[in-house]
Design a protein around this nucleic acid. Structure first.
Length: 474
RNA sequence: UCCCCAGUAGCUCAGUCGGUAGAGCAGGUGGCUGUUAACCACCUUGUCCGUGGUUCGAGUCCGCGCUGGGGAGCCA
């Protein structure tokens, strides 16, 4: 294996990450570890410090011979303090760990007054931790969640890169509301106390920063399609904003979405990619994040790893919306909302299909045209469109996508029917006028994926700083 | 936005029939020569979410508001 060239000075006495100390450092070696104190315990001769630097769920035990250190140094070492430790890695005399650091030198970078530091050795509720989001990355739970989140972000880029997809940065600020995926946040530099008006009294957006009304994006899809019809296969991975007053464990006002868009893919190709993609990501977590998954499995979700394995090992069920409606009607189950062809499926219906009927992920296709977006490819007869939703246990819809309407006539007719002004999407329509191609794509809710691979149950606990109605602290 | 539930010590929670509040943990002090959410002893800590009402008396009952949670809708 050719190691990448390293421009750092290897001779410098640099700290070693705790993950690397635990994984590969030999006992007898002098090491320097730096991190935050989880607990300190012991007696007047001997102290044990559990030190964690976030490189792994595991802490390393620091053994301190009390008489060799000044009292005021040891007094400063309390839960939450940040320290640097020089010492010898030794095999542990106690149970519970194989190696530990016998401290020779300790430097305190930052104390944490135990009277006021909010994190204790004992467990806290997730609700409480949300109120101290600036400190919660220091807990085992959020360390694990954030490492898994990183691993998934990395795996997404790698998956697409390995398959020749181009990462496309679509705009955050947009002038169009074309996707209709929800209410949008306004972007403006106008003074709300003193808005410029036109002659008829409307707000004069021509005086605004962009010379027109602008919002935060609800999806990068439309721009993604433009690039797919040039580069063949692209994906976006960026923040998305929905100003819905949703108050659930599955919605955020600011979330991250992955949106691949592929020329020459029909709906089946689209489904094949979605299924392979999501299985690949779950498998990546299973093979790279097992320490963290074991912790989460133990503390939050006893079925987590088993459920992840079952997703990877089984094919997703694939059926049409119409077939799903039949199954629901024949189920004999007394749903709160009755099932009728043409209505959108309710949560209880999706849950029944995934968790009771099929007992595995389900891909539903060919939804009624009237409950789906204008850009989806119309089937023969026009009653349904080539849409697909991937439904997962516990979290419901994790992916929504479709084959796109590539026919210029049909697409503009549908836009007109839904009263979408052509002036807002003329550029989108032009791709169907010049060198159009069959193409497909989907959107994966990144936080919903993280919910699934961490076993967390609230989406506010899988993003570092959640944005929800009435909450934009931190 | 709608329905349901909750808000009591720094944290997690108990508080019976309406009679002015308690436990565990955390924190402090002392003890302990290998601890593992260390242990043992002692000690400290309250705007009972806010507001208005009922009552001789409200943590407890009622109205309104705020915040949080669960479910629904919107969706990823």
């Amino acid at each position: 294996m050719v190691l990448p060239r390293c421009y750092l000075n290897p001779m410098k006495n640099r700290r070693i990450k705790i993950r690397d100390i635990l994984k590969s450092t030999k006992p007898g070696t002098t090491v320097k570890a730096k991190g935050w104190v989880r607990t300190k315990r012991g007696n007047k001769n001997l102290n044990f410090i559990a030190l964690n630097d976030g490189s792994t769920i595991h802490s390393i035990q620091i053994v301190v011979d009390v008489p060799e250190f000044e009292d005021n140094i040891l007094q400063q070492i309390t839960t939450g303090a940040c320290i640097s430790v020089n010492g010898t890695l030794v095999e542990s005399m106690g149970k519970g760990q194989t190696v530990e650091i016998q401290a020779k030198e300790i430097k305190v970078y930052g104390t944490a007054d135990p009277e006021t530091y909010p994190l204790q050795k004992k467990g806290h509720s997730l609700e409480f931790l949300r109120e101290i989001a600036h400190l919660r990355p220091r807990t085992n739970t959020f360390g694990a969640v954030l490492r898994v989140r990183h691993a998934m972000a990395f795996a997404i880029h790698k998956y697409f890169n390995d398959r020749g997809f181009c990462c496309l940065h679509t705009p955050i600020i947009t002038g169009s509301d074309a996707e209709g995926a929800g209410n949008m946040f306004r972007v403006s530099t106008l003074d709300p106390e003193c808005l410029p008006r036109t002659e008829n009294g409307a707000v004069d957006y021509s005086r605004d920063f962009f010379g027109r009304e602008t919002k935060l994006t609800v999806s990068g899809q439309l721009e993604g399609e433009l690039a797919a019809l040039a580069l063949s296969e692209i994906y976006t991975f960026g923040p998305t904003f929905r100003a819905e007053n949703s108050n659930t464990a599955r919605h955020l006002a600011e979330f991250w979405m992955v949106e691949p868009e592929m020329a020459f893919y029909d709906l089946t190709d689209n489904m094949d990619l979605a299924e392979d993609f999501i299985k690949h990501l779950i498998n990546h977590a299973l093979t790279n994040c097992m320490d963290d998954l074991e912790f989460l499995n133990k503390m939050y979700d006893r079925d987590l790893v088993a459920r992840m394995n079952s997703i990877v090992d089984n094919n997703f069920a694939r059926l049409t919306y119409t077939e799903a409606v039949e199954i629901l009607k024949k189920s004999g189950k007394d749903f709160e909302f009755p099932v009728n062809w043409g209505c959108d499926l309710q949560s209880e219906h999706e849950t029944f299909l995934v968790e009771t009927h099929f007992k595995k992920p389900v891909i539903l296709t060919d939804y009624p045209r009237d409950i789906k977006a204008f850009y989806m490819k119309q089937n023969e007869g026009s009653k349904t469109v080539r849409a697909m939703d991937v439904l997962f246990p516990r979290i419901g819809e994790i992916i929504g996508g479709s084959q796109r309407e590539e026919n210029h006539e049909k697409l503009s007719a549908r836009a007109r029917e839904l009263k979408i002004p052509e002036k807002d999407i003329w550029w989108y329509l032009e791709t169907r006028k010049f060198g159009t191609a069959p193409h497909s794509g989907f959107g994966l809710g990144f936080e919903r994926l993280i919910l699934f691979v961490t076993g967390m149950s609230n989406i506010r606990d899988v993003i570092p700083f959640p944005r929800t109605p009435k909450n934009a602290e931190f």
